[in-house]
Write a protein that binds this DNA or RNA. Structure first.
Lengths: 123, 123
DNA sequence: TCCATATGTCGAGACTAATCGACATAATGG
DNA sequence: CCATTATGTCGATTAGTCTCGACATATGGA
């Protein structure tokens, strides 16, 4: 991951409405939500929300797909993985003694024990 | 993690100088670096750097400790873990099918469980 | 075609952040 | 103490972001 893209992502998440939208969209994986519903859910004018959604999209954190009159937004979970990886893995600079404890903390949430999951994650 | 603190952290990292400083300090774990060295390393005036270091400190991403005339800054690896956790674990809202693949991607870097996996991470 | 619905774009005002010169504070040694 | 080194704070300027009214575009149906 380029640091320019990381900065885009951090900038996008460094705003409460956008952070909330991003988490809302993760909750609604994998169906997604239309722009109007998102705006109503957050009690934000539709044009303001449109701007926020554009920022998140440019940052690669969400993606849009037109469906008839609505435009459905979805979280890009790949982006979460890449960003978390940028924080943990790339930042550690290949020094397992630093990032191993970080990963150890994350793993209990939902450990990827099986080979099947490892295969799925291998891009 | 409170979302307010997450926003502080994302704001702090959403700036190229600060992101570089943060990564520099992770490279220099656990000794840390004095403020002056950091400023020189980044070719930034000392007062500008002081402001950036204050932002990172307020965000809880680094910490300062006076050592004679110098003030040594260190990355708080706990913060990395918490922030990555906020992205991956909290955002998934307890839905393993979402975050398991994300963690699976991170694990090969330096898995915390077994020596065997650590060996595999070197390929 | 004309209207209603859904969303995006533009532009202006208000707010916030980044930078850096000048000055202030803190520690150390002579 | 005074000078020196190391760092932080203040204030002003500049640059960028957030918000939202007004307008524009896209889709589907009467």
């Amino acid at each position: 991951m380029e640091s320019d893209q990381a900065i885009l992502a951090f900038t996008a998440l460094a705003q409460s409405t956008r952070l909330d939208v991003f988490r809302l969209l993760i909750e609604h994986e994998p169906e997604g939500l239309p722009a109007g519903d998102i705006a109503r859910h957050m009690a934000v004018p539709h044009n303001t929300m449109s701007t926020h959604l554009a920022v998140l999209t440019r940052a690669g954190l969400i993606e849009a797909e037109r469906q008839s009159r609505s435009i459905i937004y979805r979280a890009k979970l790949d982006a979460v993985r890449v960003l978390a990886g940028y924080l943990v893995k790339d930042c550690c600079g290949g020094r397992p003694e630093i990032c191993a404890p970080l990963i150890a903390e994350l793993t209990p949430c939902c450990a990827p024990q099986t080979e099947a999951v490892k295969e799925a994650a291998h891009d």
